[in-house]
């Protein structure tokens, strides 16, 4: 059952934008603007670095999905087990080139896995953060500046897809006793309650799990009181939901594949490998994993 669903969006520090002479109501919408804004913010000297991200692997997947680009073959592994990854083309190359360039310019600071980049944003050490929408409440609470949220930046001129859902869902394993299943069912009903869903959304930024909860939030004026919470909904609703590329991947060895991507990105940022070699390395290792998976689970 879905429970904590999120997606990735752009957070920015409006006070720092103002201090750097930028319009606090005009966050960057493209990667080109990320670079231009980044240069301006760096030149103004208000911060040492401009932006960071959480979950680098997931942020990369977002960049593909939001432009309706597949990650792996067989419709991202949805119409059959995937046999190879397909992101290592001009487009994928452009993503990693861009990030590496921004890193070398000092605009992007690599923030490590998961949520470790959040502290730099909350402390006002960086002006922008690309992170899960689930961090919103925490960031608003801890930040002593005006926080703006906006859509995940795009590459201009490429197709429209959608940002993919992250977070988690609740799974029930087979073979439990009747009594335990009854307990599980009570728990699932509890998490699905309207009040609980609203509380969960307000306390984190995750999407509320039911339509009833969403309507109540809308009716009570939650989204007009703080527009920052609306961004995630609009981003998802304004994208496509009818293509495999825009709805996420289904890959057996995905956990390992993600870590391979992160370590390749790290090598590219550190200058240990060229962006091209880094992506080639990731592709080669991931394809081997997919092949092994196919051998074990295929047929």
């Amino acid at each position: 059952m879905p429970f904590n669903s999120s997606t990735a969006m752009l957070y920015y520090n409006k006070d720092l934008f103002k201090a750097a002479g930028l319009d606090p109501n005009k966050p960057p919408t493209t990667w080109k603007e990320m670079e231009e804004y980044g240069e301006k913010i760096l030149a103004s000297g208000v911060v040492d670095y401009v932006y960071s991200t959480g979950w680098p692997d997931w942020i990369f997947e977002q960049a593909l999905a939001i432009h309706d680009h597949l990650y792996a073959d067989n419709d991202n592994g949805r119409s059959g087990l995937a046999t190879k990854v397909v992101f290592n083309d001009d487009f994928g190359q452009m993503i990693i080139d861009t990030w590496t360039r921004l890193h070398n310019k000092g605009i992007y600071i690599f923030g490590g896995a998961e949520y470790s980049a959040n502290s730099a944003f909350k402390a006002g050490q960086i002006a922008m953060l690309i992170q899960s929408t689930s961090s919103l409440a925490g960031i608003l609470k801890a930040s002593e500046f005006k926080v703006g949220t906006s859509f995940y930046p795009r590459f201009e001129g490429y197709p429209v897809g959608n940002s993919v859902i992250g977070g988690g869902s609740i799974w029930v394993t087979k073979g439990q006793s009747e009594e335990e299943l009854r307990g599980v069912w009570e728990f699932l009903k509890y998490t699905g309650q309207k009040d609980i869903a609203i509380q969960w959304h307000k306390g984190t930024g995750y999407f509320p799990v039911s339509g009833a909860a969403l309507k109540t939030l809308l009716d009570e004026g939650w989204f007009s009181a703080d527009q920052a919470f609306l961004t995630a909904f609009l981003q998802i609703l304004s994208g496509r939901r009818d293509t495999a590329a825009s709805t996420g991947v289904r890959l057996g060895p995905f956990v390992a594949m993600r870590e391979i991507f992160v370590s390749s990105l790290e090598k590219s940022l550190a200058g240990q490998l060229s962006p091209k070699d880094a992506l080639n390395e990731a592709e080669e290792k991931m394809n081997l994993l997919l092949k092994d998976y196919l051998e074990l689970y295929g047929k």
Binding site: G112, A113, E259, V262, S263, E266, K267, L269, Q272
Partner: peptide
């Protein structure tokens, strides 16, 4: 193990 898991996860790179 604990130290590596908390600090670097084996990264950056490997």
């Amino acid at each position: 193990f604990g130290l590596i898991d908390i600090m670097t996860h084996g990264g950056p790179g490997n």
